[in-house]
Simulated assay, not measured.
Amino acid sequence: MSTLALSTAKEVFDLLRDDLRAIERELGRDAVSDVAAITEIADYLREGGGKRIRPSLLLLAAKAQGYEGQGMVKLGAVVEMVHTATLVHDDIIDAADTRRGRPSANTTWGNAKCVLAGDWLYMQAFHIALEERNFRILDLLISLTQQMVEGELLQMETLGRAICETEYFDLIYRKTACLFQVSMRLGSILAGATDEIEDQLGEYGRSLGMAFQIVDDVLDLTASEDMLGKPVASDLREGKATLSVIHSLENGTEADRGAIEKVLLDQSFDRVDHAEILEILNRNGSVEYAMAAAFRCAEAARQGLAALPDNEFKRALLWVPDFVVARDK
């Protein structure tokens, strides 16, 4: 494989298969509590699957720089546990009924138990990370958690109103891209990278995470419920203005703006239906505008890899942005 261009998801995940399996086993061991509800909720969430893109990034960052130790398995489990904890809390905040095509955990166990299970997962992630005995790792994880909580609070303050692109990009950095960034930084720290290389790979993660969330937001508006595994246009129905919507608010007609603002304010499609919003977005070229921004972020991500030695792990990292912008769910 080292002599071939990595071009498919299967090749990349084959490259990481053993380590990802080790991370799954680590998650199974780490998410066990004396309190049955915590173990049940954690098992349910793990069985829901997911792309495991964040631990994969950590593995690729470490391996691309020659690291071969077990720390990357432990920290891969840590970033996945942090991600899972955020999903539990997000579903409670958004009153979501489904996640990845299954009932969300809060519909089965209730909000109170899921809040506490999410808290437990956060603390367990820190407990596992502590085993590395590295203050830089703990500092990154603490700052990450603060950023993500601040992002969620900031988003709650914007619900039901139009926001500008600057606000939007700040939100998606805090909610999504900072965890991609930290995943790349953690892999670099394990590999003993210089501060400069760590910063460059962190920028790769940040740009990739921005592209990932922009595409996620576009799919929320345009994909089918079967594809998404959850109701379509959930963001708009919750009063969240994402990039395509912001573009039409700023570039559409007065009638376009009025229709979108009704949905944001109502947090429902009772007065304006989803099809009408899609027509507005398509007529104004707003979906294409958002996807162009995602492609720019993907290209910026690739630029952050210039200093890495050429190997199959670097080639996998070069391919990941294509996967992120081309996905359909």
Score class of each variant (00 low, 15 high):
A129N: 00
N282P: 02
L305E: 08
V263W: 00
R99M: 07
T158C: 12
V82I: 15
Q124A: 13
D30W: 12
Q181Y: 08
I137Y: 07
K262D: 09
L171N: 03
G304T: 07
R237Q: 15
R46T: 05
G50Y: 02
I277M: 08
V115H: 14
A85T: 03
G258K: 13
N311S: 10
G187T: 02
R136S: 11
D217N: 09
L281V: 02
F135I: 11
D226N: 13
D43K: 11
Q124K: 15
L186M: 03
R133V: 13
Q181K: 14
G69M: 11
K175H: 07
G239S: 08
C114R: 04
R206G: 12
G118W: 04
P309W: 04
A292E: 15
L228F: 03
V215G: 09
S286H: 02
R174V: 04
L20Y: 00
D97Y: 10
E276M: 10
D235S: 07
L243D: 01
K262I: 15
I163F: 04
I260R: 01
N251P: 12
F313W: 11
D199L: 08
L179S: 02
C297H: 12
G151D: 02
G118V: 07
C114K: 03
P309G: 05
F323A: 05
L221P: 03
R133P: 09
S56V: 06
V320Y: 12
E80V: 10
F269I: 04
A275V: 10
H83S: 04
D14V: 11
L318N: 13
L171I: 01
M227P: 06
A293T: 08
V32R: 05
A105T: 06
D217V: 01
G285W: 03
A294S: 06
H89R: 02
G66S: 07
D90S: 05
F169M: 14
G28P: 03
N111G: 05
E288P: 06
V215L: 04
T108G: 08
D226I: 14
I260N: 00
A259Y: 12
I189G: 04
K262N: 10
L171R: 04
P103M: 01
E225W: 13
R174W: 06
R257Q: 11
E167H: 10
L121H: 09
G71T: 01
A292F: 08
V245P: 03
S7A: 15
A293S: 14
M1V: 15
S286I: 06
T3M: 15
